[in-house]
Design a protein around this nucleic acid. Structure first.
Lengths: 186, 186
DNA sequence: GGTGCCATGTAACGAGTTACATGATTTG
DNA sequence: CAAATCATGTAACTCGTTACATGGCACC
């Protein structure tokens, strides 16, 4: 995975690990389901972490001493994870280390666009129309989130990624719209 | 994976499969190494496909009848894959079907940014500086590619993704630069 | 004709994906 | 109180990642 790191006692830490460590740091002691909802409504917009990982990963991190687990006895018997000093250190260390320009845009629309010389003109037109619609929808979702949370000072840092989302979706919309003018007959 | 599809005789086709099918369609009969180089210099810029997949995947597709294999007898004994009618159909079918707004931006920089309320100010400043540098470097790479290939009519379709890259990187640079003004002391 | 890099793979392992399962809560 | 949905997981399988291995080819 992207820049995996081994830490004492040979646990490999990847993006998923840091999402868990960071999420629990921001939320306080949490269950996997808490993490799932948190990720879905925030990071999940640009980087999806499947819920099965958010159940598996905390278990690994707990085994490595970066989290503690406590399991309910009655009811749903759910596991609540809390961060340890070691976990906090690992998160801080990651935040402090240099970040290569590791970025990946896994966009099926762009992938198809690359191969459209094999496709029919109708396929290309349809693709362009769908992409415009999809990106507009995403942008609208971001706007809704912004209206809801944009001015809460306690979220000031977290909403920065939302601003990045605006920039990106705006750029994608312009790109596809410009392409529409070139390829879609009016 | 993103929108996997089963086709006759239960082969699952994902993005990697279509990259292989599409690559061989554009290049003609190819070895895995040909695919590797092709992907590295084109799609790989926004979606990395590891070379081990580009060796494994054609084997699967050949078994499913979407490619043919031929193996050299002497020398490097390399396998050359060519597309079959079924393979071409599968590619066309994929290009023709609707594309959900499936997009994922796996950007470690943004991930860290989301969690910077846990980090120190120096970490944030360093992050911002690194990201600006990284995105500028990427943009420069795209510009070089554009100068090299932008006006070749036979690549007209393929370079469209490069234009998307411009839009994207430009947006990211603006985003991080604006952030720099806000957080980095002058 | 040796040396070093390039080409062509393979293997092992960890991560991601999908599907399923089941018990708790909520809601009609 | 039945039905639907939510919450909490687990399992199987595929994909991605990393590392290694080796033989060919080019170049000195």
């Amino acid at each position: 995975m992207y820049g995996m790191i081994r830490i004492m006692s040979s646990v490999r830490l990847g993006p998923t690990s840091y999402v868990v460590l960071g999420g629990i740091t921001l939320l306080g002691p949490s269950t996997s389901y808490d993490l799932k909802r948190f990720v879905e409504t925030t990071l999940g917009h640009f980087w999806a972490f499947p819920h099965s990982q958010l159940y598996a990963e905390p278990a690994r991190l707990a085994e490595a001493g970066l989290l503690t687990v406590e399991r309910e006895q009655g009811g749903r018997r759910r596991r609540t994870y809390a961060i340890t000093a070691a976990g906090h250190d690992a998160l801080r260390a990651w935040l402090g280390e240099p970040t290569p320009g590791s970025q990946e845009l896994r966009d099926i629309g762009l992938l198809k666009l690359f191969f459209t010389e094999v496709a029919s003109d109708e396929d290309l037109e349809a693709l362009v129309r769908e992409q415009i619609a999809a990106h507009r929808a995403t942008l609208a979702r971001y706007q809704w989130l912004w209206e809801r949370f944009g001015d809460r000072p306690e979220y000031a840092r977290r909403v920065l990624t939302l601003k990045a989302g605006f920039a990106l979706e705006g750029a994608m919309i312009s790109f596809w719209e410009q392409l529409a003018e070139e390829v879609v007959p009016t």
